[in-house]
């Protein structure tokens, strides 16, 4: 019972980080059919930015997280405008190779700036305690992480379902040509989505240092996990990314808890089974 609770709790915290990082990747893939394997690099950048701002500039925790979002979103727009857009019309292979190239470069640049070792996460004092939920105590930081992520998810859902831009994004994901022909500026929409998705990855990276760790190899190390969330959830589906993140987070945590030597085994088996059963992902459109 205690084990199940720990797995559920830690799995959920892990899932929230996976979701925040992967959701942008899923939506850009759904919107432009762009396979961005370098998406994790934006999460890594968010992590390094937040840590550096806290350590060097003395900016408080919450401020650093917000700045990580803004900073990563702005940097991603530069990349999108100058490099990414050259690849929208190209084939999948070119996109994969181009973004893997970016991943390699991100490893080199981050090693030169921040060094090769794992970064120690900074947890603010008010989150260093335990939270008593009546039947059990949980670490405050991860509780905070889960709550903030849930709040972001609700905001994301509201923005997509209830605002005009959200409706335009949904329309463009469903049928890009049709959306264009009724006057939606899909090009601009994509830049906005790309920035938002990268910014969210930045938040996920910043909040998730305590869960995923942070080394220059981050984008490569976690790439498979992010891609699994996207593929299992279904391209362009936020609900899919959420369900997949929770599924993957809990299964991976449970696997590593019970079988420390071959923990990821189940993760890959489940992914293969899901994709053979539903190649378009759980919530993807065939």
């Amino acid at each position: 019972m205690t084990a199940a609770l720990s797995i559920g709790f830690d799995g959920l915290a892990y899932a929230m980080v996976l979701f925040l990082i992967s959701v942008g990747m899923s939506v850009t893939m759904g919107l432009m059919g762009f396979a961005n394997l370098a998406h994790g690099a934006f999460a890594m950048l968010g992590g390094y930015l937040a840590i550096t701002l806290m350590r060097e500039a003395g900016i408080p925790f919450v401020g650093a997280i917000v700045l990580a979002f803004v900073g990563v979103a702005l940097i991603s727009v530069v990349f999108e405008r100058t490099l990414y857009r050259r690849f929208y019309a190209k084939g999948e292979l070119d996109q994969v190779l181009f973004t893997i190239g970016l991943v390699f470069m991100s490893i080199a640049v981050c090693t030169l700036i921040w060094g090769p070792v794992n970064v120690v996460p900074i947890v603010p004092d008010f989150l260093k305690t335990q939270v008593d939920l009546g039947f059990r105590e949980f670490p405050a930081y991860r509780t905070f992480l889960i709550l903030v992520s849930l709040a972001i998810i609700v905001a994301l859902w509201y923005g997509l379902e209830r605002t005009k831009v959200g409706a335009q994004i949904r329309a463009a994901v469903n049928n890009r040509r049709m959306a264009q022909s009724i006057g939606i500026d899909v090009d601009r929409l994509f830049t906005i989505t790309f920035a938002l998705g990268s910014g969210l990855a930045g938040i996920g990276g910043a909040l998730g240092v305590e869960v995923l760790g942070l080394t220059p190899f981050y984008a490569l190390e976690w790439l498979v996990h992010f891609m699994i969330v996207v593929a299992v959830g279904g391209l362009g589906s936020i609900r899919g990314a959420f369900v997949a993140a929770v599924l993957i987070g809990v299964i991976d945590t449970a696997g590593k808890y019970f079988f420390p030597h071959a923990g990821a085994f189940f993760l890959f088996v489940i992914t293969i089974v899901v994709l053979l059963w539903r190649p378009q992902g759980l919530f993807g459109r065939a």
């Binding site: 999948e92 891609m227 293969i272 994709l275 190649p279």
Partner: peptide, 16 residues
């Protein structure tokens, strides 16, 4: 399968 799904399946098979 094709596209991203095929990419993921080849990747997951090797990781498995």
């Amino acid at each position: 399968t094709t596209g991203l799904t095929l990419l993921m399946l080849t990747l997951c098979f090797a990781e498995l």
